[in-house]
């Protein structure tokens, strides 16, 4: 498609999706949402945004594909190794000082690399059985991928490098076997983990946690939506629970910033101090 997508096109698109499928993309960050839509138009060779809108109006099964493509599912195991060390060496021990178990929510877990990273970390600490983990995503297909713990073997190179820098006490290949160019992670790692469909945008509180990880997810939202989601996270945390966002995200501009303190600014670890 040669023609540039205009904001009015995106508005019409989000309107149709909202009316027909009850998913609201109107508060996604414009620059990346526009690029994702452009990408879908190129991928499926649509002649225009209108052609995409028509397809979405007429063929409900296509919406699932749209959802998978419009959301960003690029992730790594142990991305930002220093962050994972901080979790292992300070945050989890701190929680376990006062609790016999720890509840963790991976919000926007995508294909599950961070969920597996957490499971490996907990296992190496000998506390995997003390953790209650919920992992959610908007996209049921990507959740299926996460559950299967099956990744392209070529991705394991960077995952392995990250793991080494994290200073895990094994070798990462202890946790997976190779099959047909895929790495299949040890299922026992995620046996107790509940993978569920959940849309952060609809903002329903469903449980309370000691630790919420939502790294590099809200960067795709505008500030209004970030504020709404952060309020929901605040409600979903026990007092003195931790919220962790991506290394270049910040809570300082959000409306409820005063209900958190910064525990580690480099790794963007915040602690809820007020209800």
């Amino acid at each position: 498609m040669q023609q540039e997508i205009e904001i009015v096109d995106l508005r019409r698109l989000t309107e149709v999706i909202k009316n027909k499928y009850n998913y609201d993309f109107s508060n996604y960050a414009m620059s990346s949402f526009k690029r994702r839509v452009q990408r879908i138009i190129e991928l499926y060779k649509f002649a225009s945004v209108d052609a995409l809108i028509r397809k979405l109006s007429e063929e409900p099964p296509f919406f699932r594909e749209f959802l998978s493509e419009v959301t960003v599912n690029v992730t790594e195991m142990f991305r930002d190794p220093s962050f994972w060390r901080e979790i292992r060496d300070h945050i989890l021990p701190n929680i376990l000082l006062n609790h016999s178990s720890v509840s963790i929510w991976h919000a926007g877990c995508s294909s599950g690399e961070e969920v597996f990273s957490m499971a490996i970390l907990l296992k190496e600490m000998g506390i995997l059985d003390k953790a209650k983990i919920v992992a959610t995503d908007i996209d049921v297909d990507v959740l299926q991928k996460a559950r299967s713990g099956t990744y392209p073997l070529k991705n394991m190179d960077i995952n392995q490098k990250n793991y080494v820098r994290f200073q895990g006490n094994q070798s990462l290949d202890r946790y997976y076997r190779e099959e047909n160019g895929k790495a299949i992670l040890d299922k026992s790692l995620v046996e107790g983990i509940s993978f569920r469909e959940h849309n952060l945008v609809s903002s329903a509180v469903f449980s309370k946690f000691d630790l919420i990880l939502c790294r590099n997810v809200m960067i795709y939202f505008n500030q209004n939506l970030q504020n709404t989601v952060l309020k929901m996270f605040h409600e979903s945390l026990f007092k003195y629970g931790y919220l962790i966002v991506g290394s270049k995200e910040s809570l300082i501009w959000c409306e409820i910033a005063n209900k958190f303190i910064v525990v580690n600014n480099e790794e963007k670890i915040y602690k809820k101090i007020k209800d």
Binding site: S31, R35, N216, I219, Y220, N222, G246, E249
Partner: peptide, 15 residues
């Protein structure tokens, strides 16, 4: 690193 309408930055981990 993206520039958003409204004169802010937006980051992305896209492909």
């Amino acid at each position: 690193l993206c520039v958003e309408l409204g004169n802010t930055f937006a980051l992305s981990t896209e492909e």
